[in-house]
Nucleic acid binder design. Sequence first.
DNA 1: TGCTATAATCGTCAATAGACGATAAATGAT
DNA 2: ATCATTTATCGTCTATTGACGATTATAGCA
Lengths: 108, 108
Amino acid sequence: MDNRKKEEFAELSKALGHPNRLEIIKILVKLPSDSQCMVGNIVDKLPISQSTVSQHLKILKEAGWIEGKIDGPSVCYCLREGVFNQFTKLLQELQGNYSDINLCKRKN
Amino acid sequence: MDNRKKEEFAELSKALGHPNRLEIIKILVKLPSDSQCMVGNIVDKLPISQSTVSQHLKILKEAGWIEGKIDGPSVCYCLREGVFNQFTKLLQELQGNYSDINLCKRKN
DNA sequence: TGCTATAATCGTCAATAGACGATAAATGAT
DNA sequence: ATCATTTATCGTCTATTGACGATTATAGCA
């Protein structure tokens, strides 16, 4: 895993590393395919303010988890295509051919 | 995904969200099964001080990624058994039955 | 042209993170 | 008992994060 990938993976992981952002991802995953994913909908489902949600969305967008589509006066957010695959692949690459053989023998 | 799992997943992700910590995980994964994984070995491979490495190890340990075994005057760190499986499962649970159908139709 | 709705950005603040050197604690060797 | 080695912790510092309310920007409507 080269440096670029390491940075990419670290940023994706870091973005995932907050309960409210995980919740946002969960909301987007669970959306029926024909429904809207406006910011307001997300704000309604989280116990934090609109501006804070907007910040979290920015972090998720910059990390590559989501995309925003302007739709009239509002913005529709959605998961970026293939991002789960991307993340899973990076995780597997980190894991390599690791097996439990590598574990320290535990005596304590 | 209940709240407990969300916190657990967020902490694991957050711990992974730093290049130096990713590097530490990579070092532990790559270790030959019969070699030592002393802190000093890790310090030698990273461009940061011993105290900072120790902090990163603490974060990884508290998140559940690694374990430390005391071995004489030194400490041997290793991946916690099954942690990659745990993380992968949580990721899959987040992803649920998500498919690209949910993506916003992109026009912009 | 205003007016409303929506979301992003700004400014602020407290808390956390990430780095360092110095020190402390624990073990093993002399 | 002293000393060297190894690692954790402490104290400090700066930068970043996560939260908020207020403001700004943009689009659609009256």
